[in-house]
Amino acid sequence: MADAKPKRLTFQDLILTLQNYWAAQGCLILQPYDDQMGAGTFHPATTLRALGPRPWRAAYVQPSRRPKDGRYGENPNRLQHYYQYQVILKPAPKNVLDLYLGSIKAIGLDPALHDIRFVEDDWESPTLGAWGLGWEVWCDGMEITQFTYFQQVGGVDCDPVSAEITYGLERLAMYVQNVEFVYDLAFNEHFRYGEVFHQNEIEQSAFNFELADTEILFQHFKDAEKQCQALLGGNKKMALPAYDQCIKASHAFNLLDARGVISVTERAAYIGRVRALAKACCEAWLQSPQGAYTPRYG
């Protein structure tokens, strides 16, 4: 006999369920990228792989850092470090929305009980020179997913077009577990989210807003920019290490922004500098084998 009331998924159950679901759809289950970044889109498995003709299907959790969103552990749903679950399907399959709705069912949101809607929300990342059209997916008025058909990345047309699905995991878990304060989430049966991350939010918020040494950060930015350009200069075209530097520059900029030391006009200029790096990386990637590999021993 099945339980009359399904057990609410813990935070890690949610991740595991999504992993299994997307694995069954033929996605590579990749691991988080080991650089600090603002969103799962920055992972080269999305940014770079969305470009060029080669098919690609991947899913992964990406820890995401948005220094400005720090609230010292006080806000019920805003975090400067949180998790995104990212799916990239290239080319976008025709039934991609049905696939997506399957994932929603898998995590226990029954469309027969809820009001699920696709509300226009186009996505743009000025720092990546990327944009796409899509929706935010609403479940009972709550945004649970960002869905985007990539049109451009690094200023280059995406051909074929990929579908990108981004779940905000904490928010989704709060909805599924009926929790109001993010730190109260059951991470698993034994630990709360707060036990894992509350202290981190307090200390990192202090770092982001008060303690980060801006001189060092400005230097980081310059160094990363310089290194990135050096890796792409001449005939080197080292797209992947150069892109790492682009990510680092972007994060340094986000921290400087949180520290409030970048004026409105400078802000646009900094974003433009990161975008120039991203664009150059994307172009270099397109001139590279783009991951092509022939098995050495057949």
Partner: peptide, 11 residues
């Protein structure tokens, strides 16, 4: 559920 969910979001 829909109303409860919406109330929660609004909260």
């Amino acid at each position: 559920e829909i109303v409860a969910g919406n109330e929660r979001v609004l909260r």
